[in-house]
Amino acid sequence: MIKEFTKGLFKENPIFVIALGLCPTLATSTMVINALGMGAGVIFVLVCSNIFISLLKNFIPDNVRIPAYIVVIASFVTIVQMVMEAYAPSLYAALGVFVPLIVVNCIILGRAEAFANKNKVLPSILDGLGMGVGFTLALTLIALIREVLGSGTITLPGCVITVPVISIAPMRVIAFPAGALLVLGLLKAFFQYREGRK
């Protein structure tokens, strides 16, 4: 059972191994705080949609399952958006357009289709948590590398750490979308290499 949780962290990491949800990864990994906020939103939506899709798997007719999943997912995303705007307006302002875009994050639909509609509720929760945490870890790692090299800072909730030396002349390209692709490519190559050695 615990394997359903841990597989999402490294072995089947959604970003580095399955390569799902790359658009939000490239877009929100500019700052560590954005990565954490996006990760929290994705974990919540993923766990909730996995629970409901697992519960409803016998109710949802097979030939309209994709629209049904999208309705469930979009509802949770809208809830996250409204709650975030009400109680964490600064985070909401920072994430901007990427919160509604969680709807089209392929990780969520992918897990609904590949896991939640075939399994019971508890494994689905663990799967959602594992995949969500794996996504957040990967996103935070990319954001950390990009923010340190690209801007010379580390922005955490409530404080900003300035990295000496780098902050004087940061590598601006790493902060741009092209830099996200470079960092992601190198990390994916590293994971591939690690996988190949086993």
């Binding site: 809830i79 705007e85 009400a86 109680y87």
Partner: peptide
């Protein structure tokens, strides 16, 4: 199939209306 899909949408709409009712004043205030 149509009825089932409509039920899912109705429930979703109801839940969203509820959450909106709770958060809208807070959003306006902030």
């Amino acid at each position: 199939i149509a009825v089932k899909l409509a039920v899912i949408c109705l429930v979703a709409a109801f839940v969203l209306a509820l959450v909106n009712g709770i958060t809208a004043p807070q959003i306006a205030a902030s």
